[in-house]
Simulated scan of single mutants.
Amino acid sequence: MWRMRGRELMGAGVPTLGLGLGWRPELALLIERHRDLGFVEVLAEDFDASGSLPAPIERLRDRGVTVIPHGVTLSLGGAEPLDRTWLKALGRLATRLGAPVVSEHIAFVRAGGVEAGHLLPLPRTRAMLDLLVANVCLAQDALPVPLALENVATLVEWPHAEMDEASFIAEVLERTGALLLLDIANVHANARNHGWDPLAYLDRLPLDRLAYVHVAGGVEREGLYHDTHAHPIAPPVLDLLEELAVRTALPGVLLERDDKFPPDAAVASELNSIRSAVLRGDDRRKQGVA
């Protein structure tokens, strides 16, 4: 069975995490009952790094489930200075959780003091790349564990790009030594919305830097695919997950669900679909079948 195996390390020094589910209060009971989960991810902004942890999180830690803080407000691609107070709190939270890694997004969320409330895409220019690298390095210096960077879904792209998305991400990882949190649903969304080949994208990423993988549901509206985290996983996303597992052994894969929470049986079915896609890809990789 594909699941967590203690603290075994992958090539980039990342522990083998196995199958995961994003922790939300609405899913807490399901997560507690689902004994095949190797890790969960918590929204870092929902936790007080100086306060006590919720009892369900403490119980998960007691039984050996890895807990990873996932940030959404650091704004690594913003022109404004990083919030050093929040960085310190994020580091304290990672330490309290015993987390092997902290994750954040390749995005910006504020400008001119205005909060967007969304993960906004970055213009893929050399100037933006230099700014992002500088901010990632500052964050890494402040955190007690490695930082993993996540690709985001975009409905529009900035004009005058100087490189494609895969090249942009690869260079950020190369220049910073950061890890990659690859959201395979976002790969599908961007390939579908912007007309590029998702398999060629995977082949150009430094998959040896992979920390773990996100999978989520979405829906197509008026010709655009929306990454909603509130709908079932689209079959092409599971196909891409299998293709990713053909290319490299996956440290862990986590299902995100943030709204319209379905019955527990439906969530369990999606977790089984994820597991099956990974196992199919593993088998093809081991047999040398492309």
Score class of each variant (00 low, 15 high):
residue 125 T to V: 05
residue 125 T to H: 12
residue 125 T to N: 04
residue 126 R to Q: 14
residue 126 R to K: 14
residue 127 A to M: 06
residue 128 M to H: 11
residue 128 M to N: 15
residue 128 M to W: 11
residue 129 L to K: 03
residue 129 L to S: 05
residue 130 D to Q: 14
residue 130 D to A: 13
residue 130 D to T: 08
residue 131 L to E: 09
residue 132 L to P: 02
residue 132 L to G: 04
residue 132 L to F: 08
residue 133 V to Y: 12
residue 133 V to C: 12
residue 134 A to Y: 05
residue 134 A to I: 07
residue 136 V to W: 12
residue 138 L to S: 12
residue 141 D to Y: 07
residue 141 D to H: 13
residue 142 A to V: 13
residue 143 L to H: 13
residue 143 L to N: 08
residue 144 P to L: 04
residue 146 P to A: 08
residue 148 A to P: 03
residue 148 A to F: 04
residue 148 A to H: 04
residue 149 L to S: 11
residue 151 N to G: 02
residue 152 V to D: 12
residue 153 A to W: 06
residue 153 A to H: 07
residue 155 L to F: 08
residue 157 E to N: 11
residue 157 E to M: 13
residue 157 E to H: 07
residue 157 E to Y: 07
residue 158 W to K: 04
residue 159 P to H: 11
residue 160 H to Y: 15
residue 162 E to N: 05
residue 162 E to S: 02
residue 162 E to P: 03
residue 164 D to Y: 01
residue 164 D to T: 01
residue 164 D to H: 01
residue 166 A to M: 02
residue 167 S to L: 03
residue 167 S to H: 09
residue 168 F to C: 01
residue 168 F to R: 00
residue 168 F to H: 00
residue 169 I to W: 05
residue 169 I to K: 02
residue 170 A to P: 00
residue 171 E to C: 01
residue 172 V to S: 03
